[in-house]
Design a protein around this nucleic acid. Sequence first.
DNA 1: GTGATAGTTAGCATTATGGCTAAGCATGAT
DNA 2: ATCATGCTTAGCCATAATGCTAACTATCAC
Lengths: 113, 113
Amino acid sequence: MAKHDPDLSQLFHALADPTRRSILTRLAEEPARVTDLAAPTGLRLPTVMRHLSVLEEAGLISTSKDGRIRTCAVVPEALDPVRTWLDEQRVIWEARLDRLDAFVMNVMKERAE
Amino acid sequence: MAKHDPDLSQLFHALADPTRRSILTRLAEEPARVTDLAAPTGLRLPTVMRHLSVLEEAGLISTSKDGRIRTCAVVPEALDPVRTWLDEQRVIWEARLDRLDAFVMNVMKERAE
DNA sequence: GTGATAGTTAGCATTATGGCTAAGCATGAT
DNA sequence: ATCATGCTTAGCCATAATGCTAACTATCAC
């Protein structure tokens, strides 16, 4: 009931931080270097590095180093498990709504009798 | 780029815990009492209570007390901001893909000349 | 009223998170 | 060779998160 989607926890956790979400949004526009990502956050480099590694470990971004410059880019399909989970939730919920509907209809029918 | 959606952080954080997700999934089937929610988790009541208040503060569930029994139920529209954020990300990403596409097409056209 | 049941509150221990500084290590430019 | 740049590592601090136990309150059933 918990163990079989460890990455979902990791994903949600990575997304739970506004700084990380803003980095993601920025990277969705175009790949960027670590320093450029750090600038708008007002945070120090090591702090941003940590955010980046959280994002990378969650699979949300990929990075590569060329010379002394590390370039980061989003991994768009990384959000798929999140979407899938949300959709599953919706399906279950709607099934429940349907049952509720049926229940209400039943009650109304009984009342009418 | 961070302050104006505090609930998004709260939502993602609430969803980042497997126990809380399993509670949500269970509640999506049908409303339940605190004790019934606690049972399958193997956790103590106070611990589960804390998870429930995290979920409630994030707006993901609502609870009400009747006599000594507290009943919890999901709030389905609570996930909407999450969906919206995901969709926005996808839009930005796709715009970027389109630009990349245009770029590639351009290069190919130039080569052909 | 006694006792079981359902939840709540208080407080504690452990670990994780998010920020920092200081110092280190490559690489690129001169 | 020297220096600036860009990233990295190590280590510290404060706070928040997750679990627990123990004790307490409020209801319901007899």
